[in-house]
């Protein structure tokens, strides 16, 4: 199991293999990665290498696919194997939030979007909801821009604001880990910069695992990077090392744009 730092890893992926077609072929082959707490870990690699699949296995949202199954290994989050029957996926997802590539706020008001996760857990006091919404919107660096129009429709915001709204929605339920699946790929550069700046502040409180196509993004915001290719983990090192002095030739070829 490769670790890249001395901090206690909050996510341990241990010899993990996964298949989308009931075990006929493996999409992920014997992956072992550890993500330390309150750091940003980036997964990079060409299209179809399995990085999104691995990310989605972390909050078991692959359970939606009927034919998906784990063919080997474990994923431990906070020390607990998440694929055992004792683990309730609902509780897991409250602790491991996810931000998607295509931002998808509900066609409700901004307030209702952020309060959605809390409302799922039962009727809440109005003042509690207000506080939580403000805290989340501040945490997502969106409060100043929307504090006067909390009841307006969320779809009236720009793309970058909507994605930050989705992030606010995710942190409103107080997860420990935030998974981000190419969160900036649908955004323009300014919006991307806003989101990256946000990630820089978020990593003080949350552990973040981000899948990204952009290597510059990985260098800018991540502490550790894992490079995947065709379902296998090729290299996992601190970001600076991986990009300036990669140990594996395939890593160097990919990051310098020689293939992929």
């Amino acid at each position: 199991m490769e670790t890249s730092s001395e901090e206690r890893p909050i996510i341990e992926i241990d010899d993990f293999s996964f298949s989308y077609n009931r075990g006929e072929t493996d999409t992920l082959k014997n992956i072992s990665v550890s993500c330390p707490e309150k750091k940003v870990t980036a997964f990079i690699g060409p299209s179809g290498c399995g990085k999104s699949t691995l990310l989605r296995s972390l909050n078991r949202i692959n359970d939606l696919v009927d034919t998906a199954c784990i063919t080997n290994g474990q994923i431990r989050i906070m020390g607990q194997d998440i694929n055992t029957p004792e683990v309730d996926p609902i509780e897991l997802r409250k602790n491991v939030g996810m931000v998607f590539q295509k931002y998808n706020p509900f066609p409700k008001s901004i307030y209702d979007n952020v309060a959605y996760g809390l409302n799922l857990q039962g009727k809440q006091k109005q003042s509690d909801l207000d506080d939580a919404v403000e805290k989340s919107l501040r945490g997502a660096a969106l409060w100043d821009e929307v504090k006067d129009r909390l009841k307006d429709s969320a779809l009236g915001l720009s793309g970058g604001q909507q994605q930050r709204l989705c992030i606010a929605r995710t942190i409103a339920v107080n997860p420990k880990i935030i998974l981000m699946d190419e969160p900036c790929s649908a955004l323009d550069p300014i919006a991307t910069a806003h989101v990256e700046q946000l990630i820089n502040t978020l990593k003080q409180e949350y552990t973040i695992v981000i899948v990204t196509h952009s290597m510059q993004q990985a260098t800018r915001i991540s502490d550790n990077t894992a490079f995947f290719y065709l379902g296998e983990l090729i290299e996992f090192s601190p970001t600076k090392e991986l990009f300036s002095n990669p140990k594996n030739k395939r890593t160097e070829d990919y990051v310098s744009g020689r293939f992929g």
């Binding site: 909050n59 949202i61 997802r93 996760g117």
Partner: peptide, 17 residues
Amino acid sequence: PKGFREASLALGATKWQ
């Protein structure tokens, strides 16, 4: 859109919720 279901599930909703 499928994204609504995924987003909702990712926030800890049960299937019926």
